[in-house]
Design a protein around this nucleic acid. Structure first.
Length: 768
DNA sequence: GAGTTTGAAACT
DNA sequence: CAGTTTCAAACTC
């Protein structure tokens, strides 16, 4: 954030690249990451860099936060994201603003051609969407942008991310280059026209993304952003530049990230292709593995556009937000919603669903569709996460991010905070699924949310009719996505897993008299408020990583660095904490001093022997992780990655490097960003893995030590030893989660991984 | 699939 | 704050 200001400003103004590179920050980044390419990238983009300045400013903290938020959402939306890779690529290709602009135009055309674009889809449409889509970008952009674009720091961040990503993606430095090459290739591809249409879509997505970013800016409203975009190409170019600039990194990262995919595509690497199988050209270029994670392509856009066109245009400016939220759940939710809406609206929606889903398989949501369709549902509550950001900006972001969600604005910050996590976790879940990570116990849950996405995505492509889709969903839902089965709570109490996770119930749910749906948004929000009023942490992730919260539990943290714990602790009497009845066990964490369990035999660690157990467990997990690392892991885990070692963190707790929330947003950062909303389920499930909740919950940001203080402050890092007590008198762990910065040593430099607290509510400072 | 067990959430 | 009830997931058969 801070870093951004000087450097960024300078960069853009004068010699983008030279100054930028010369800047301490840049050097720092370079040092941090093995990736040198960034510079080169910049160079390539140098052309644009001038505009970059503005972009930087744009990216200022808010964006970051937004991005980070987006991230969380992104993953959810992975489906939708598929387009991004292309988009990114396209971006790369069109380094210059002009190129971008053109691309935008092209996209508009393509969109129109494809019908994807709503009336608005054209350049204007794109613009309009952009604001709302900011979320999508995050999603689409997958990791790169999110992580990388962040603030001025973005650059910094980006590097690390790239480093992280590339290693896995590429596997080795050479591959990185390849990735770059791949980028070029991608460009070629995009240019080639393989997918002009797609490219167009991609561009649209990019633009939208950019717009999103712009939107994120604290001062900029969605509308303003839209206006800006709409207003002048220059703006677009600017945006593009901005994106690119950050993208450079992001691009690199992405590219590298995608590159892998792209390369694979071109090269035909077996691993990834399977999914794509031939579809690469079109929407689904992203590897199957990443399909969820990576955005496919414009298709989403198209779909969105189609949706808009056909049915209702969900995209109201305000509704843009919704899109982002599409998670697996969202998918389901959307379906439900669709069903929901369909009844009222018409078949068109369902079609959209199908179409969107099919095409996008990825949640990506793109603009239109996703927005309309997905939008809201799943995410609804998640919005909170975004909203978590205390600042008004945060709120905006939230709205944007959550956008449409019915829940768009969470009643209480805490709620937002809490809810925020979930999305992330979900997204993570998706990622994990795609990745093939399967937590043992938690698989079910993890799968619940995630899998669908991946599953859906893959399968959806083929599905044309809503019905078909639905079936698939059901299938998925049944197998991978469990949902609630509430009979009497109307899914408006924490008994309901969906509700507790900040999600709307979706088709897979077997609930009766469910009120947890977009149709009852008001009720849902009100209920949430009430619950949060009783317990601000009610929607916060249940599992907290001790390591993350360095200060939180000084004792525990120190002793059980690798362990995560349940925020309230369990109260098991008969299960010996060996069954899922036990939330600690369910969350894959050991019991802690907060637990009041009797006869604890928690295999993840007992209160008495938690530390040791945790350590062992953590170690074992670490090994597992290291062996199993993949992009997702890396991304999520971030610090876990060898390169990014985080001394204190557990292997368990995955940390997601998030884009630091700079500026205002950052202010709420942890709290705000928090993500998500309702990642819990995932968290739980993940815990077994490395990830445990932390992944989502925590979004680590790599921040230079210098920055940490501010971050901490902004984040309201929990003071050490501060314990929060839930209203219920249950023990509430302080916001360890994300709030506590974790330090990472890399290349002799100490980086502080700041987790973006998923649940702001957890943060004592913020809430309290 | 029905019934039981369990513990969190909600209520008093 | 403690005790009780309600609830839905987890589990068993």
């Amino acid at each position: 954030m801070e870093l951004n200001t000087p450097n960024k400003n300078q960069i853009p103004a004068t010699n983008p690249l030279s100054q930028f590179e010369d800047s301490p920050v840049f050097n720092y980044i370079n040092n941090l990451s093995p990736i040198e390419l960034v510079k080169s990238m910049h160079n390539g983009q140098a052309f644009n860099f001038p505009s970059f300045a503005s972009p930087l400013s744009v990216f200022a903290s808010p964006q970051l936060s937004s991005q980070s938020d987006a991230r969380s959402f992104m993953r959810r939306d992975q489906f939708s994201e598929p387009s991004k890779p292309e988009l990114l690529q396209s971006k790369d290709e069109n380094d210059t603003s002009i190129g971008v602009f053109e691309a935008a135009q092209l996209t508009g055309l393509s969109v129109e051609q494809s019908e994807c674009s709503t009336p608005a889809n054209s350049s204007k449409g794109v613009i309009t969407k952009l604001p709302g889509e900011h979320m999508e970008l995050a999603i689409e952009e997958p990791d790169t942008l999110k992580y990388y674009c962040a603030s001025p720091d973005d650059n910094i961040i980006m590097v690390p991310l790239k480093a992280i990503i590339e290693p896995q993606m590429a596997g080795d430095p050479n591959e990185r280059y390849c990735s770059r090459k791949s980028e070029k290739d991608l460009r070629k591809i995009g240019q080639t026209g393989q997918n002009e249409d797609e490219a167009g879509c991609d561009w649209v997505a990019l633009i939208s993304d950019v717009a999103d970013i712009l939107t994120l800016e604290p001062s900029i409203d969605e509308e303003s952003a839209e206006k800006q975009k709409m207003v002048d190409p220059g703006t677009i170019s600017f945006i593009s530049n901005v994106l690119q600039a950050p993208q450079d990194n992001s691009d690199d990262s992405e590219t590298s990230y995608y590159a892998g995919s792209s390369q694979q595509r071109e090269i035909g690497e077996p691993g990834i292709q399977p999914v794509e199988s031939g579809e690469q050209n079109e929407a689904h270029q992203t590897p199957s593995v990443f399909s969820g994670t990576l955005p496919d392509k414009p298709i989403v856009n198209d779909a969105a556009a189609k949706v808009d066109i056909r049915g209702k245009s969900y995209q109201s400016s305000s509704k843009h937000k919704i899109r982002r939220r599409c998670l697996v759940f969202e998918m389901g939710a959307h379906k439900k919603k669709l069903a929901f809406e369909s009844s009222s609206s018409t078949s068109s929606q369902s079609d959209h669903m199908g179409a969107s889903i099919e095409k996008h398989a990825t949640p990506r949501t793109d603009k239109g569709k996703t927005l309309s369709a997905l939008p809201g549902r799943g995410i609804g509550l998640h919005l909170n996460a975004l909203t978590a950001t205390s600042s008004g900006n945060a709120v905006k972001i939230e709205t944007l991010a959550s956008g449409k969600q019915e829940i768009s604005q969470p009643p209480s910050p805490a709620a937002h905070m809490a809810s925020g996590l979930d999305p992330v976790s979900k997204s993570l879940a998706l990622i994990t699924v795609e990745t093939d990570f399967v937590p043992f116990d938690n698989e079910d849950k993890v799968m619940e949310n995630v899998p669908q996405t991946s599953m859906v995505v893959t399968e959806d492509f083929g599905i044309s009719s809503p019905k078909m889709k639905r079936q698939k969903f059901e299938y998925l839902g049944a197998s991978s996505c469990k949902r609630c089965n509430c009979k009497r709570s109307k899914c408006l109490k924490l008994y309901c897993e969906c509700f507790a996770a900040g999600l709307y119930c979706i088709e897979p749910c077997s609930c009766l008299e469910c009120s947890n749906n977009p149709a009852h948004e008001d009720t849902v929000l009100e209920t949430r408020r009430q619950i949060e009023s009783r317990n601000p942490l009610a929607f916060a992730p249940k599992v907290i990583r001790n390591s993350d919260s360095v200060s939180e539990f000084g004792e525990e943290t120190n002793k059980t660095p690798a362990s995560a714990r349940h925020k309230r602790g369990c109260n098991c009497k008969k299960s010996s904490c060996l069954k899922k009845y036990c939330e600690c066990f369910q969350g894959g964490v050991g019991c802690s001093s907060y637990c009041r369990c009797e006869g604890c035999k928690n295999t993840f660690g007992c209160k008495n022997g938690v530390e040791e157990n945790d350590l062992k467990w953590g170690e074992s997990k670490i090994h597992e992780n290291t062996s199993n690392l993949n992009l997702l892991d890396i991304i999520e885990k971030g610090e876990d990655h060898p390169d990014l070692m985080v001394p204190s963190k557990d292997s368990r707790s995955p940390v997601h490097p998030q884009i630091p929330i700079s500026g205002q947003l950052s202010g709420s950062s942890l709290c705000d960003v928090g993500p998500s909303t309702k990642m819990r389920p995932i968290q739980r499930f993940r815990t077994n893995f490395f990830y445990h909740q932390p992944k989502y919950e925590k979004h680590l940001q790599v921040i230079p030590e210098d920055e940490t203080p501010e971050i901490l402050n902004r984040n309201c890092l929990p003071t050490s030893g501060v314990k929060s007590v839930s209203p219920n008198s249950k023990r509430v762990s302080p916001p360890h989660h994300g709030f506590g910065p974790s330090t990472t040593w890399r290349r002799g430099r100490k980086l502080i991984l700041r987790s973006v607290s998923p649940s702001p509510s957890l943060n004592p400072p913020c809430e309290q």
